[in-house]
Simulated assay, not measured.
Amino acid sequence: MAETLIQCFDGHNDILSKIRDEKNLDPSAFINGFESAELDLPKAEKGGLIGGLCAVYPPSVDLQPDENGVYPELLLKDATKPTMEMAKLLHDIEKLKPERFKICKTARDIKEAIKAHQFAAVFHIEGAEAIGENLEELARLYQDGLRSLGPVWSRPNIFGFGVPFKYGSTGDIGPGLTDTGKKLVRECNKLGIMVDLSHMNEKGFWDIAKLSDAPLVASHSNAYHLSHQSRNLTDEQLRAIGKSKGLVGINFGVKFLREDGERNRDTPLKTIINHMRYIVDIVGVEHVGLGSDFDGTTIPNELHDCSQLPKLVAEMEKSGFNHDEIEKITSKNWISVLERTWGE
């Protein structure tokens, strides 16, 4: 008899961008799978990945960062088309195979999808440049199923200052939320849209911590103490997330894991476990999950796609996590924090 896989629910992937860039927005690419994808349905089923937050990311296109790593702002008119294309792609995947893929708007939806052996997808936006100052687009996107939103990617916009990618620096770079950004956070709280802190700079993080009445969530971030990347979280930030009954999703990106910050695929899975254990010790095991960043960054060779997630589970067992702790980190904690955030 085949061994039962530990179920995994993941806090961040960029497969929609991958399909947009390589497969011309073809929804069958996700259902049937393709070689260069780190996450598609066949690989998910093989690895026990039952669902996750699927990011809609408007790319910077030809915009280049300055000498400090700061990107120019992406304008509303340039962000709208890719955002809407990828949102439609998510729905097209569901229409193509509704018995195997479901866009989930509630924690109950997620639980029902898991029971029905459907991939439980949550519509997430990473970089809210397709939303204007009056926030009219936010209400429409919510009706379209949006339930999680990162106000910024690592570039400034009308809502705040996305932290530049910078090794050897904390995230204390640039100003905090704008007045429009504060308005966005309040409206997300009102609607029950999770606000993702993973690309927020430090001042913006603390603005949201002060303003928001929802759990603080960083969907794909690691511990600054172990890897001095600007995108990683300080101990003080980690403690604030734990106090809010929020969650940190562990990012598999090697440059966010390694002490030297290098983009080196020959990074052992133990490095992921080190971040996991460090953050668990600060926030508690109930507030840590997975935030792979599949198809969005460079991940270790051993974990070359989501079919290999059982290797990570085996490494967790080897490192002393018990079965209950593993189930919490790999899936249950994400479902619980979404339940709390969405007001169920």
Rank of each mutant, 00 (worst) to 15 (best):
N13S: 14
K23E: 12
L25G: 09
F30L: 01
A37M: 14
C54H: 15
A55E: 06
S60P: 03
S60L: 15
V61E: 10
L63G: 07
P65R: 13
V70M: 10
V70F: 02
L75S: 12
K77S: 13
D78K: 12
L89A: 03
L89H: 00
L90R: 04
I93W: 02
I103E: 11
I103K: 08
T106P: 05
T106R: 14
R108N: 09
I110S: 13
I110G: 08
Q118Y: 01
A120G: 01
A120D: 00
H124R: 07
H124Q: 12
I125P: 05
L135I: 02
L135S: 06
L135R: 03
E136I: 06
A139R: 11
R140Y: 10
S148W: 00
L149M: 13
P151V: 07
R155A: 15
G160H: 08
F161I: 05
G168M: 11
S169F: 14
D172S: 13
P175G: 08
P175T: 08
G176Y: 02
G176D: 00
T178K: 03
L184G: 02
V185D: 06
R186G: 01
E187P: 05
C188V: 10
N189A: 01
N189G: 02
K190D: 01
L191H: 04
M194F: 02
M194D: 04
D196K: 03
H199D: 08
M200H: 01
K203C: 09
K203R: 14
K203W: 07
I208D: 01
A209E: 06
P215L: 01
S219T: 15
H220Y: 06
N232C: 08
T234A: 03
T234F: 06
E236Q: 15
Q237S: 08
R239D: 09
G242W: 00
K243M: 03
L247E: 00
N251C: 15
V254T: 15
D260M: 08
D266K: 13
K270F: 08
T271F: 03
I272W: 14
I273F: 07
H275L: 15
I282H: 06
V283A: 11
G284Y: 08
E286N: 11
T297E: 00
N301V: 11
E302V: 03
L303M: 14
P310F: 04
E317A: 11
K318H: 14
G320S: 07
N322S: 11
N322F: 05
I326C: 05
K328S: 09
I335T: 06
S336G: 11
L338Y: 08
R340N: 04
W342K: 13
E344Y: 00
